[in-house]
């Protein structure tokens, strides 16, 4: 029982945190919450399944194909979302666009992945035995990769020239562009980074659980809740929000009722929005905060 809760906690926390981070990266550069982000999670998962399980190629081939393709898929999303948003000028254009992409992607994935359950092979099979139950190595790899990605992104954002440029563009894109900073390039780069992170989450995360080709929105919503709980626009908030939401969800599912997790997610979202809209660690944040 304890091992089950632990495995599920790591799975839900890590995938929620990674999705929250990818949503945050896009949000910080565009003020768009990309509800189609979970579709790249499914793309990463589906490609790992097709290449690794169906075509029986090794994980290096999976990585060589899936990583660039998910980053490019992020770039494609930037084109599909930002062109209508910029041209329409409507404050709700992003909602319509991102949800439309979600619906189209769901249908395409249902057609493309005829297997109802996608579960790529783990990078490392087996696990530690605790009280006769197995703590899979894969779940620990997922946790480690999640922490590394957050750490690396923090360094990138705060210590590199490109990262500082991204923050400046997010704070005031008009003024930043007058200094010759390629703001649109940074936005495109944000979508690519977000796609890459969601894709890696899909690949590594789905090896620990069965994922349906149409599950993308479920992971987006989990990431969205983690982002709100942690603090909208905050990288560290995404990590903390992911782990708070994931742990609570896993504990409630395993100790009270399997169906209560989703109810909890909806409830915590409402509570946070009403009583602490800035999130757990957020103060009243300003545009561009990371």
């Amino acid at each position: 029982m304890i091992v089950d809760v632990l495995v599920m906690t790591i799975f839900l926390s890590s995938t929620s945190a990674l999705m929250a981070l990818s949503l945050t990266i896009v949000y910080n550069s565009t003020r768009v919450i990309n509800f189609s982000q979970g579709e790249i999670f499914i793309l990463g998962c589906g490609m790992a399944y097709q290449i690794g399980v169906v075509m029986k190629l090794n994980m290096f081939v999976v990585a060589a194909v899936a990583i660039p393709v998910t980053a490019l898929a992020g770039l494609l999303l930037e084109r599909l979302i930002m062109i209508p948003v910029r041209r329409s000028g409507s404050p709700v254009a992003w909602i319509i666009t991102t949800l439309s992409i979600t619906l189209i992607s769901q249908s395409l994935f249902a057609l493309a992945f005829t297997s109802a359950q996608l579960r790529p092979d783990p990078l490392l099979a087996g696990g530690f035995k605790i009280n006769g139950q197995e703590l899979p190595y894969q779940i620990l790899i997922l946790l480690a990769v999640t922490l590394v990605i957050f750490f690396a992104y923090e360094i990138f954002l705060n210590k590199t020239t490109f990262g500082i440029g991204v923050r400046a563009a997010a704070t005031d894109p008009e003024t930043t562009s007058t200094f010759g900073v390629p703001v649109k390039l940074f936005v495109a780069g944000s979508f690519m980074a977000a796609g890459l992170i969601a894709g890696i989450g899909g690949w590594l995360g789905s090896s620990a659980a069965f994922v349906l080709p149409t599950d993308g929105l479920r992971f987006t919503v989990a990431g969205f809740v983690a982002m709100i709980v942690g603090g909208l626009g905050s990288t560290r908030g995404a990590l903390i929000g992911g782990f708070v939401v994931g742990a609570m969800d896993a504990i409630l599912r395993n100790t009270i009722n399997p169906g209560i997790g989703e109810l909890f997610i909806a409830a915590i979202l409402v509570i946070i929005l009403v009583f602490r809209p800035q999130g757990i660690i957020g103060a009243a944040r300003t545009r561009g905060d990371a």
Partner: peptide
């Protein structure tokens, strides 16, 4: 902003292709 985000979530949860 929160209203827009919440509306998006509601639409997202209700989304189902048909």
């Amino acid at each position: 902003k929160i209203a827009i985000i919440s509306a998006g979530l509601v639409l997202a949860l209700a989304a189902c292709s048909s």
